[in-house]
Design a protein around this nucleic acid. Structure first.
Length: 804
RNA sequence: GCCGCGGUGGUGGAAUUGGUAGACACGCCAGAUUUAGGAUCUGGUGCCCAUCGGGUGUGAAGGUUCGACUCCUUUCCGCGGCACCA
């Protein structure tokens, strides 16, 4: 008979809620453990079974750590600003606030249904007025530190969405959401100087326990390059073009220069006869999207300006070209071209018949174009014979002595475009007066969004807020307009940049968080979420945290000590779960049919947490069967089964119990839930064979079950005569001596092939085992009459006879 | 093109420092029970040949080793990210 999971699960969820079982405070003298989920954006579609995967994992860790005696902070909240609610508002006129509330209610219901041990008193919502206040406050801290500035930037303008999109929201020239075309248009924007923190963000990666792949992604994104800035005087002018190169050793091979078409010197350097083609080229380049300039257009194009620069190392006259393969946004927007050592320059030089000089000796069998490998320098006067590393060093020394350049470091990382032309985001707390801009005072925060009825952005691409005169216009006592509020709002990333800090002190109205509480709880010990946030969210949040640290508001440099990315759950067909494929599994239906304990168990049993794996409802039935098997062994008719006795357990049971304690504990610590569950199954399969199940053994086992299947564990715990929740029971102690086998199986190999195995007492010594092995009658057949040239003994495992 | 990760039965996946490959579960096969079953229980199940038994086997090919899923070299395939970053 199947256990009544519906009754049990709702009973315990009500119990936990009523008793505030998971409420947590700071002052209890325990060691803290902060386990955090990436909070969700509550979409209209609700959860599918993939969403709670990480939440199940962290819940297991949270419950386990509580039983290990830690004071566990495990909160949940809502990242509730965002484009979908605003688009829905544009379409239907429904205020984003209403949509958001409805979606949150549904998400909360679905999440609660799975029996997570969140402290719901700490629930936060990035769109709450009090929350906005502190998001704005942090922005002002950045502003005051000189890290926020306005600039005209070409932005991704999407006419269809009537919104400006961040680079990360544009995929292949189309909007990530909806796939509408996106164009480059310059517009006044707020920027955050994340580039000032490039080095700090890079260095911090060495301190954290994160997946290697995520660290690598962030390192690539920051993109640190070491090299030199070199100054090239322009012939017949007083101008100098500065270039960045990672290969100062190749300076003798620089046979021409290239400026980006947007480079400020282009006009001045273009001689009269070249004006027309240059202008034309600039125009074409400006119309190209980044995509066209890049991927679609690997053939090199460019135009000669007519001017020449002087190579500072040998005073050679070299032509200055413009070409769109040089980007204004990296380095100095100009390069020295060394076609012999750089394939892009080679391609360009070949296209336009420019000279090529090799500066590194190529191997004899080399038949490629540009040579990027190492070798002794040639054609390079004082560098000749030096290998790249030394040649670079020597050239930088020379440049610095001659004052013609210097060693330099550049980053690919760009400043963060922080403004959005939308309604549904935190207003940027800035007022524009005639010639100056002023931030709001702390006392004027929060600056809340005005109530509006029309959500369409103004056709100009500005946010719908520009049309709300009574909100935008700042008047003096005479009623004259003296200032205008900033109408840009913050991107969705803003709220998620610091939410983990607000959980620490969610109700504080005096400060964003209390300092003592912050230093008690931080850093986050374990942070689990999707790999799609590997760069942006995690880089932005780290950036804010580093700034807050420099300002003395937080106690740690890095916010997230250990990071883990859960993998995706695919549809039963092995492809990504999506509405359009029709392969979405809805957790409501699963919970209704099998219960949330079964669903939790199955999702953890499917495979390693970080791997993508397909859903299989049959597999879930196996987990459901496991719970039922255990239930029907230990429970009957609303009470405990008569099989449960006060007898002492037999040796085998004790041994298996202690092996299980060890395995499950180790596995949870390492987030290997699938193998922990497999051990629970092995243990249960053993329990079922027993006529008498010792109560002490069952109690220990139920405790280990509790983090995984908390409802049924509470129920059995109660059946066993306990009045208190199992939540704070202590985790079973592992005793190594009790877990040891007294009989061991030794595999016996002959020439590396398994030929027999023998059972030996665990304390047998090498001599006993070797002689028993030789006496084994199957082994005898192999070794008789042969010479044993080697005997290998691996203690407790195997014997290998090497014979001739 | 560059960087990172991964290829193990029909399926999801297990395998301390190199030491009995395939734990656990699904599926399948056989049997029991049942009016019936997408229920439950028992047994079997990598592949090949066979009666015991033997051979073979972790994408492919080499190598190191008494012994390799594990280490090294080459190569193929899949996934994720970046992409003219000088």
């Amino acid at each position: 008979m199947s256990y009544n999971f519906k009754k049990i699960e709702s009973k315990w969820q009500t119990f936990w809620e009523k008793n505030k079982t998971f409420k947590v405070n700071e002052n209890n003298g325990k060691l803290k453990y902060y386990v955090l989920d990436m909070f969700p954006y509550p979409s209209g579609a609700g959860l599918h079974v993939g969403h709670p995967l990480g939440y199940i994992a962290t819940d297991i860790v949270a419950r386990y750590k509580r039983m290990k005696g830690f004071n566990v902070l495990h909160p949940m909240g809502w990242d509730a600003f965002g484009l979908p609610a605003e688009q829905y508002a544009i379409k239907t006129g429904t205020h984003p606030k209403e949509t958001t509330k409805k979606n949150i209610d549904n998400f909360r219901r679905q999440i609660k249904m799975l029996g997570f041990s969140y402290d719901w008193d700490r629930e936060i919502n990035t769109t709450d007025t009090v929350y906005i206040k502190w998001t704005q406050w942090i922005f002002l801290q950045l502003y005051k530190k000189g890290l926020a500035y306005e600039a005209d930037k070409p932005v991704n303008w999407c006419p269809e969405l009537k919104a400006v999109l961040a680079n990360e929201e544009v995929v292949d020239g189309k909007s990530e959401m909806g796939g509408h075309p996106v164009y480059r248009v310059p517009m006044r924007q707020w920027m955050l100087k994340i580039t000032d923190y490039a080095e700090s963000l890079l260095a911090g990666l060495d301190e954290v326990d994160w997946p290697q792949s995520v660290k690598e992604l962030q390192r690539n994104w920051i993109g640190r390059s070491e090299g030199a800035d070199v100054d090239f005087p322009v012939e017949n002018t007083h101008k100098t073009i500065s270039v960045f190169t990672t290969r100062p050793d190749t300076l003798f091979g620089a046979t021409y220069m290239v400026l980006s078409p947007e480079h400020p010197f282009v006009d001045e350097l273009t001689i009269a006869s070249q004006k027309e083609p240059v202008k034309k080229y600039q125009k074409i380049a400006s119309r190209k999207s980044d995509l066209e300039r890049g991927e679609l257009n690997k053939e090199k194009t460019g135009v000669f300006t007519g001017s020449y620069a002087i190579n500072p190392v040998n005073d050679e006259k070299i032509p200055i070209w413009i070409a769109d393969y040089v980007l204004m946004s990296y380095g100095t927007g100009a390069i020295m071209a060394v076609p012999g050592e750089d394939q892009r320059d080679w391609d360009f030089a070949t296209e336009f018949d420019l000279p090529i000089i090799r500066t590194v000796k190529v191997p004899d069998d080399y038949d490629g174009d540009a040579y990027t490998g190492d070798g002794p320098a040639i054609n390079s006067e004082f560098l000749n014979g030096l290998y790249i590393h030394d040649a670079k060093k020597k050239m930088i020394e020379w440049l610095e002595t001659e004052k013609k350049g210097k060693g330099s470091v550049r980053y690919k990382l760009r400043d963060w475009l922080f403004s959005r032309q939308r309604y549904w985001g935190e207003p940027i707390p800035i007022i524009h007066y005639n010639d100056e801009i002023k931030p709001l005072k702390d006392s004027e925060l929060p600056l809340v969004l005005p109530e509006i009825e029309k959500f369409e952005p103004s056709g100009t691409g500005e946010s719908p807020l520009v049309n709300i005169k009574e909100w935008v216009e700042i008047k003096n006592d005479e009623g004259e307009v003296i200032g205008l509020r900033e109408t840009n709002t913050m991107p969705q990333w803003a709220g998620s940049c610091w939410y983990y800090l607000r959980y620490i002190d969610p109700a504080n109205i005096e400060q964003p968080w209390d300092k003592d509480k912050e230093s008690y709880w931080m850093p986050v010990d374990l942070y689990v979420g999707g790999a799609e946030h590997a760069v942006l969210h995690l880089l932005y949040a780290r950036f804010w945290h580093h700034v807050l640290h420099d300002l003395g508001f937080v106690s740690t440099r890095e916010p997230f000590k250990k990071l883990f990315n859960q993998g995706m759950i695919l549809g039963e067909d092995g492809s990504k779960m999506s509405k359009s494929r029709g392969n979405v599994i809805n957790p409501d239906e699963i919970v209704d049919e099998f219960g949330s304990d079964s669903m939790r168990l199955y999702e953890m049993f499917m495979g390693p947490l970080d791997k993508a794996k397909p859903w299989n409802t049959k597999g879930l039935q196996g987990c459901s069967r496991f719970i039922n098997k255990l239930w029907s062994k230990v429970c009957s008719n609303g009470g405990i089964s008569t099989d449960i006795t006060e007898d002492a357990p037999n040796d085998e049971t004790v041994k298996l119990l202690h092996q299980t304690i060890k395995k499950i504990g180790d596995d949870i610590e390492n987030l290997r839930f699938n193998t922990a569950i497999s051990q629970m199954m092995i243990f249960t399969n053993h329990l079922i064979t027993l006529d008498n199940v010792p109560k002490s053994v069952l109690e220990a086992f139920v405790k280990m079950l509790a983090p995984f299947t908390p409802h049924v564990a509470e129920e059995i715990w109660e059946y066993l005569g306990h009045n208190e929740t199992i939540t704070y029971e202590s985790w079973p102690e592992f005793d190594e001596t009790l877990s040891k086998e007294d009989l061991i199986t030794i595999a016996i190999q002959v020439n590396g092939k398994l030929r027999a195995d023998i059972n030996m007492a665990a304390n047998s010594d090498k001599e006993d085992i070797l002689s028993s092995a030789k006496e084994n009658k199957r082994i005898k057949l192999y070794i008789e009459g042969k010479e044993i040239i080697k005997e290998i003994y691996v203690p407790g495992r195997l014997v290998n006879f090497v014979i001739k």
